[in-house]
Design a binder for these strands. Structure first.
Lengths: 193, 193
DNA sequence: CCGCACACTTAATGTATCTTAAGAAATTAC
DNA sequence: GTAATTTCTTAAGATACATTAAGTGTGCGG
């Protein structure tokens, strides 16, 4: 699929887009290739862009005082990713975003997003739906973290994101679940009762 | 403050609203008084409304398989609350919403919200900002849950939400933090080093 | 194709947090 | 205003999960 077509499909799942609007959107996106391990956003800098993942796998993570990485999200094709806190407020990012596999992304700067909102008011609706879905996802994760032991969270993760499980190492998954790789290994060994 | 004025103020922090739009908004809101312990939304039913809290304190919580309540959020004056998953998708709610103190809320049904989006496209922007802020909040909580021990999460909670700490019992706060009231009590006893 | 870094596993020991139980304090209901 | 209910605390014992350390596999850069 043509990369632009991939984003437009993603957008058109939620709003309709005229031919001239398609051109406008395409003109505001910047394609970036991101090599495995390459950093797209570094904690401490301001997140100026939101990225649409066309191919490959990205992750965002928080580095805590002990220096440990805590994975906040994974993003594969058709996902949008940024440090939403930094992108919203202009404060320094808490998260680092890098590639777990070679990736291709389309980046939209905050200025261009605001331009889109101005020139194409329905894009506000699209972005509202994007944010609302992200809110649903994060709230669902909070519920799981509060109410389930690690073993059950792991099962739910495999069920909800089978496309991640195949491509992401156990170490990364453990970090996402908030447990150590050693403990995840011991969970996996257990007969799944 | 006139209740309608309170909501309009909240909305006008993010978008400008004409006189006729103000009337429209007011006409679509329904005032509800909620007595302490009264249930506004019951898990299993569909969340048809989003509620603006004018006075009092509400909470939403998830009841897990063991029957324990896990608090997802508190809402005091000027907060909006619903089960965003159920409200978005029309699926049965996972959360129960009830009042921890006598409260007054203004409820906006999903139909009326869609009507607002149609008649007042800038309302899409307001709601986008609402959802984006909620996303930021939930992501920040996930980062804290992943990277900090309970004692530090409690400190951050007190710092971030001093208005909650005064009005909400230790038991509720413990549930929000994902720990038992007994353990919270032991944390509070420790000299704050 | 070799070597090295890194992922995954296993197991012993350690610790944060839970469970249970009971009493004291505070709030609520009649 | 007093009984009844709920909250908060304390403490002992239990458990989920972390830490450390060592060994085995696996991918990948040169």
């Amino acid at each position: 699929m043509q990369p632009a077509a991939q984003i437009l499909d993603n957008i058109q799942k939620h709003i309709s887009v005229s031919a001239s609007e398609k051109k406008l959107i395409e003109s505001l996106l910047v394609q970036q290739k991101v090599a495995k391990k390459e950093v797209l956003l570094e904690a401490g800098k301001v997140a100026t862009d939101i990225h649409f993942v066309s191919q490959g796998v990205l992750r965002s993570y928080f580095t805590d005082l002990e220096g440990d990485q805590n994975i906040v999200m994974f993003a594969v094709n058709d996902w949008w990713i940024t440090d939403i806190f930094s992108f919203s407020t202009g404060n320094p990012a808490q998260l680092t975003i890098d590639a777990l596999e070679d990736a291709v992304v389309y980046s939209l700067s905050k200025e261009n997003l605001e331009l889109l909102f101005l020139k194409m008011p329905t894009f506000e609706r699209f972005f509202r739906i994007l944010m609302q879905n992200a809110y649903v996802r994060e709230q669902s994760r909070i519920i799981q973290n509060l109410s389930m032991p690690a073993e059950e969270r792991y099962r739910q993760f495999l069920k909800k994101y089978p496309q991640f499980a195949e491509r992401i190492t156990q170490k990364q998954i453990a970090s996402y679940l908030g447990i150590t790789p050693e403990f995840l290994s011991s969970l996996r060994k257990k007969p799944n009762s």
